[in-house]
Write a protein that binds this DNA or RNA. Sequence first.
DNA 1: ATCGTTGTATTCAACGTTGTAAAGAAGTGC
DNA 2: GCACTTCTTTACAACGTTGAATACAACGAT
Lengths: 337, 337
Amino acid sequence: MDRARVGLKDVARLAGVSVKTVSNVVNGYIHVTPATRTRVEAAIKELNYRPNLSARNLRQGRTGIIALAVPELDTPYFAELAKFVVAAAEERGLTVLIDHTGASREREQLVAEGFRARLIDGLILSPLALTPEDLSARMDDTPMVLLGERVYEGPADHIVVDNVAAAKEATLHLASLGRTRIAAIGSQDTVAAESSRLRLEGYRRALKEAGLPLDDRLVVPAEEYHRADGARAMAELLDSGAAPDAVFCFNDLLALGALRTLLERGLAVPGDVALAGFDDIEDGRYGTPTLTTISPDKRAIARQAVGLLAGRMAGTSGQAREFRVPYQLMIRESSGG
Amino acid sequence: MDRARVGLKDVARLAGVSVKTVSNVVNGYIHVTPATRTRVEAAIKELNYRPNLSARNLRQGRTGIIALAVPELDTPYFAELAKFVVAAAEERGLTVLIDHTGASREREQLVAEGFRARLIDGLILSPLALTPEDLSARMDDTPMVLLGERVYEGPADHIVVDNVAAAKEATLHLASLGRTRIAAIGSQDTVAAESSRLRLEGYRRALKEAGLPLDDRLVVPAEEYHRADGARAMAELLDSGAAPDAVFCFNDLLALGALRTLLERGLAVPGDVALAGFDDIEDGRYGTPTLTTISPDKRAIARQAVGLLAGRMAGTSGQAREFRVPYQLMIRESSGG
DNA sequence: ATCGTTGTATTCAACGTTGTAAAGAAGTGC
DNA sequence: GCACTTCTTTACAACGTTGAATACAACGAT
């Protein structure tokens, strides 16, 4: 194999034209004779020429690459989201590079501060640990769109789902089944745990609206949002004697973990305890029982994020914007659907 | 914000040195006076300079980016694998760009043929539909490592798990429980479905070794490897009257789908039907019951792939190599563990 | 014929970086 | 003091591409 890189120059020599003409053919410039075009295309094919994107990018000042930074890629919610983002980016001719931050503030800062600067044209960041102050202090001027639940007043565009309303709707749904001891799994007391706080707020408002008392023993924290944490939290809840007859989990993985504990202990779902989650990941749609959950429109999130980012990259200026993306309560078997 | 890009030139002017000296500081060149270094570093900080990677890459002829092309990113197995690949790449200072092929032969060909050529230095491809002929015909000379089950004699390095042995071990485990009517879910008759074929072969060998008859009605195809296919296949199996007392599913998602059908129909797992899967995805470790499965060492797969690729990128030449990665049978509740 | 117009192809410079070679400064050994 | 090495910094060219400016040819209208 030729290890030697073939460039416009080589194609030009073979086709007997200037370098620029080859460039014109490659870029579909209109004023090229069919004859030359054919000749050049033949040469391109013969040499198996591929444009050097680094050179092109250098010249044009853009790379066509955007980064998507998520806490964990192997979390179903983010994997599904990533898929939609990649698809939405492709529609616009953009390539996605994925960073995972592991939910560490340090890594999130690094990404926001332009760790990939001059390689990417834009950044979609799903922050978990980053504080609004971190964001205000941001130096890098790469366009950025924030994803997810948190509401920032800061200077960055962001896409949000109304967590309070969604959590309230899920909790009210459980109440509408006649449940009176509705627990919540997933509270967090870190400064940065905004989405947890918002969902808790929704839960509280729902209880108030339903005329149910607020019992602190029914609110159980979860350090992370994985199945294991949900299983552990559910066990605590049952052992504490709080005797819940429904549980709203702050995400689906917590709910699936909780479900596991409930079934292990011989409790019926939804018979003894009704269950609702948040995220609508595929796992929840095929478990036993299937999981009632809040389904944020992930495709819309991805589309909006990429669209907004593309706009900024194209030079749109102005105030940071917030886009609200719709969600839907999916009632399934775990709450008697 | 300065929208104007700051380059070495600007830093050099501010620090009162030549462009190359700044470059030397940035790259940690040894022979720079502490005094100059400090001065330059101050200037870099003041201007918030970031190297332009496109330019650097153009100059050096490499980008430091590798692509990982997987069929579906939101499939747990690949999401987990992707995470390990990203981590392994980071250890070597490489950045990963993810492509998803949707298991389409066309997209896989596109990727292998250098769709991203001159942007990436190497490619890790997990082929599903690509034929060995496609690979032999490959023109692009970007280093490539193939991932996954398929064994190619072709010209590319690849990382494999011994599918036949693993499938045999899983099936034999089911037989060792005293089950005599062991079904298999996931056969495929596409030309390209190599991994399905290998797992089926392992299943057959196990039956032979256990002295069990081979009953065609016990082998059920699955078009794709998702939960829905598993659920459907299990239903077919039960409706056909084949009366299985154990099922080996060719991946965990199929198994989880099958599990769903079994529980829906009031059958006990593993009491009435024992179940085993393949991949060891996290979902299987927290379902009810937990899932017996073949666990390929994903971290090793990722490490080997990136290492091998890095070697080729550094210029190692020679015959295509095959690396075998270990696996482990994880016995859990679905087979009475 | 002459002028403009349009279409086709070329030359030149520049994007920001780094490898090479070489220049200048400073020390070392005789 | 001289030749020599070592350290520090620089000028220059090149990576492969494309935008701007321009040359040249062909054409139609005057």
